[in-house]
Nucleic acid binder design. Structure first.
Lengths: 133, 133
DNA sequence: ACTACTCTCGGAAACGATTGTCAAATCCGT
DNA sequence: ACGGATTTGACAATCGTTTCCGAGAGTAGT
């Protein structure tokens, strides 16, 4: 499988259901939460399947994935291109932010120390206005 | 535990052994790796104890902790104060970096969106000069 | 529509890091 | 050295996630 094709990607009810949830969802959610939501909507999908499909979507860059402090992986739909997140630690509301300054700073710092092929991760956590009251 | 004192903090062989390892260690290491190193040095310490002491040291801001992509928590000694890391993804060599500009930017962005109690995480990964050759 | 060939599903078992339990060992002030 | 509190450590339990594997469902070819 080194050469070309990804797997053919079949169009299943479960795949559609997970994608639909993610399209609606505002903040980050864990695989288990998404599994619960599916159950509530009556579109029951096996937990393993939820995990698999979320991974697939994340691999295809259709979802952002991040780990919270509890070690859970959270998913959320995302716009294309490089960006970071401002996440409410109460309700999960998320704002995508860009910071050209930060990008340049990170690259410059890495360059100063002779590092190549630089990447970075940056997340901002806080309590949003609504949750603060 | 809201009120006053930290726990009395006793000076045990195990606590000293863990602290000693961390003083020597150059890059980030997982609790289990540290447990192994202790065993090799003949200073055997229970795994739970290693976990507990690493957490305690991290809580006391004597160690930095970060999670790798595999979900393991890695520890490393650190200087005091807020800082970030530039980590070589090959050899683990780590440089502590500061970025007042970034701090201000993050706070400003969060403030713009009405977020309070803001924290952020930022790590830079790359290949260091030595490993690039 | 029928067949054959996969890919996918799902429930249960496996996994791996971490945390909890609790009796025994160890500290440390007195 | 004594005694009460903390800490240790072997083991079990937890928790998120992954893997297994037989059954089920898409899809292409006829």
């Amino acid at each position: 499988m080194s050469t070309t094709s990804e797997s053919p990607q079949r169009n299943t009810r479960q795949r559609r259901a997970v994608a639909a949830i993610m399209a609606d969802l505002e903040g980050f959610a864990s695989a288990q939460q998404i599994h619960d939501i599916l159950k509530q909507r009556g579109e029951s999908v096996g937990l393993s399947t939820v995990y698999r499909n979320l991974q697939a979507l994340a691999d295809a860059d259709l979802l952002d994935a991040l780990r919270n402090d509890d070690g859970e992986t959270l998913y959320r739909r995302c716009s294309s291109g490089h960006h970071h997140h401002l996440v409410c630690r109460q309700c999960g509301r998320t704002v995508e932010v860009e910071g050209p300054t930060v990008e340049r700073w990170a690259d410059a710092v890495a360059d100063d120390h002779g590092f190549r092929d630089v990447e970075h991760t940056l997340e901002i956590f806080g309590t949003c206005g609504d949750c603060a009251s």
